[in-house]
Design a protein around this nucleic acid. Structure first.
Length: 505
RNA sequence: GGUGACGUGGCCGAGUGGCUAGGCAAAGGUCUGCAAAACCUUGUACGGCGGUUCGAAUCCGCCCGUCACCUCCA
């Protein structure tokens, strides 16, 4: 048996290619992380989830995967065209916003949102990178790299900073197809105005700016590093001069990744990354997600409980929603599909219960469950075809649920193997996190009230006073709780709803 | 203007020359005092117009529409 082949779309070739690591059996993977100037939104997380699925799938087939993802905690500029004359710094902007007023300084703000990122990351049951480097902790390395690029003739200093010379790197533009500078039309805003730049396309490696809120001392005076530099430097530091896969959002193809290639390859003289994987932006309810449209959704808001102003969504359902579209296609995130995914997660939990606790029986579905399991992995190996994988997931769950009244030993074992694969590859089973809403005293009181009402209802049913029983149930439902009668008595659970969307239902 | 992607049933989303994707919603049924859950059943869609072919949602051409990137948004 040959080992399974993992195929991914490579932006460099615009083709789906088998992933063949430089060093057989060992995968070096770098995924671009966010700038932490606010809560990360679901679009950010769609990209991070693509990385997460790459790691999970690679490990499932036994590739020893070294996974690095950074945190950008330097405030880069919102507009390059005004950068030289004092453009705005993202962090500084966030600091002066209403929300940012509570932070003492940009360092504090970056620290806060970096912590929140990690919190959202773990809520979505995402794999922690082996190394999670921060830009501000790699300034010295960045300065050394700039010096090396100047020494080798790939960069030069001007009054405003140090620029990378695009003319000194022949492959510039290969990744994005932006080969010439001429294709920038009048619809594009003007490029950086700096008479000392040798080519308008040259980009900054170091900005001189003694007024910047975050600044460091360098051979070129006080200032801060260019945005593209940090990822190249940190990838080189933790993964070596040549990595296998480099990923990020589609917007990073140009200029960020194009510039990374230029810097890293000029520095090392070797091909930097062999596979480039990019995630398409998602839309919300059919529209581009934008703060101005009011459809800017953060993971923080969606999964926080209602009491603290969130929408109280099960993080696993959110995770499933965000991976339910193919990563290279525009995905339309809607509350309708989120609601469907809440049901899927409930059924998944039921299937776990069946696999563990269903009584012994004579079911005969092991072959079907195993087929679903194989189909699931095969779909993921085929350029992360998550919609197909989820179809296999649902088929497996459905099959397992048919065994709830009795399951054979063979089927139980197949079911457990299936669920274990679902756990490791899709990451939508998070049992530690699932009962996360810390059981507070309020919850205990609430439960006691419901139990008491159910007792009264049970007595009414016993005396066949169904009208009373039903009216009690209606009362319970108005409290947001669903009642389910079963052979071992009535069970209840909170009705899954999305705060702010299902209000009044 | 340049580059790239995409348009599939009420909705979300696979497929990419002939063979049921799947899910949500909906309808009917089994079960139940009634429900809920679960299970079973039902649904013939591929933006438009041409062309290639025995046969096209799938290939080719044109058109229409949507979206993204083109110097710092994942």
């Amino acid at each position: 048996m040959s080992s399974p082949v993992f195929r991914l779309h490579n932006t460099l070739s615009n083709r789906i290619e088998p992933v063949e690591p430089l060093e057989p059996g060992k995968l070096r993977f770098y995924s671009c992380g966010p700038t932490v100037y606010s809560y990360a939104h679901i679009g950010n997380f769609r990209t991070f989830l693509t990385a997460d699925l790459i790691v999970r799938t690679a490990r499932e087939i036994g590739l020893e995967t070294h996974y690095v993802s950074n945190i950008t905690d330097v405030g880069h500029l919102t507009e390059d065209d005004v950068a030289d004359s004092g453009g705005e710094d993202r962090m500084a902007l966030a600091l002066s916003s209403k929300e940012g007023k509570r932070f003492a300084n940009v360092w504090d703000l970056a620290r806060f949102y970096a912590n929140e990122l990690l919190r959202d990351w773990s809520r979505l049951n995402m794999i922690e990178p082996d190394v999670r480097p921060r830009a501000t902790e790699h300034i010295a390395q960045q300065i050394r790299t700039v010096e090396a690029l100047i020494d080798s003739g790939h960069a030069y200093e001007t009054d405003s900073g140090v620029y990378f010379s695009v003319d000194a790197f022949k492959d510039y533009g290969r990744l994005s197809g932006n080969i010439s500078g001429d294709n920038l039309s009048e619809t594009t805003r003007e490029l950086v105005v700096d008479d000392e730049k040798r080519n308008v396309r040259d980009f900054a490696l170091w900005k001189k700016d003694p007024k910047h809120l975050m600044q460091w001392y360098s051979p070129w005076g006080w200032g801060f590093p260019g945005w593209h530099l940090e990822c190249s430097v940190m990838a080189l530091e933790y993964l070596g001069e040549q990595i296998d896969i480099h990923g990020g959002g589609e917007d990073l193809i140009f200029p960020h990744h194009e510039c990374e290639i230029a810097q890293a390859e000029s520095y090392s003289g070797k091909q930097f990354a062999r596979y480039w994987v990019h995630t398409r932006f998602l839309q919300v309810e059919g529209e581009k997600m934008a703060k101005s449209k009011g459809n800017f959704l953060t993971v923080h808001e969606l999964v926080s409980d209602a009491a603290s102003g969130g929408r109280g969504i099960n993080p696993m359902a959110l995770r499933l929603s965000l991976i339910s579209g193919h990563y290279r296609k525009p995905y339309n995130f809607t509350f309708d599909t989120l609601r469907a995914n809440l049901k899927h997660i409930e059924r998944l939990e039921q299937s776990l219960d069946v696999a563990r606790n269903a009584p012994s029986g004579t079911s005969d579905v092991a072959a079907r469950i195993t087929a679903a399991s194989e189909r699931l992995l095969a779909a993921m190996l085929d350029d992360l075809n998550t919609p197909e994988a989820i179809a296999a997931l649902l088929d497996g769950i459905k099959t397992i649920l048919t065994c709830k009244d009795g399951i054979s030993d063979e089927d139980r074992s197949a079911a457990q193997q299936f669920l274990s694969r679902v756990d490791s590859v899709l990451g939508i089973i998070n049992e530690e996190g699932s009962d996360s809403p810390e059981s507070s005293e309020e919850d205990d009181e609430f439960a006691a009230t419901i139990e008491e009402m159910l007792d009264r209802r049970q007595r009414a049913r016993a005396s066949r006073d169904f009208a009373l029983a039903d009216s009690i149930r209606n009362e319970i439902e108005e409290m947001g709780v669903e009642v389910m009668d079963s052979p071992d008595g009535a069970k209840w659970k909170r009705i899954t709803s999305i705060q702010g969307i299902d209000a009044g239902e």
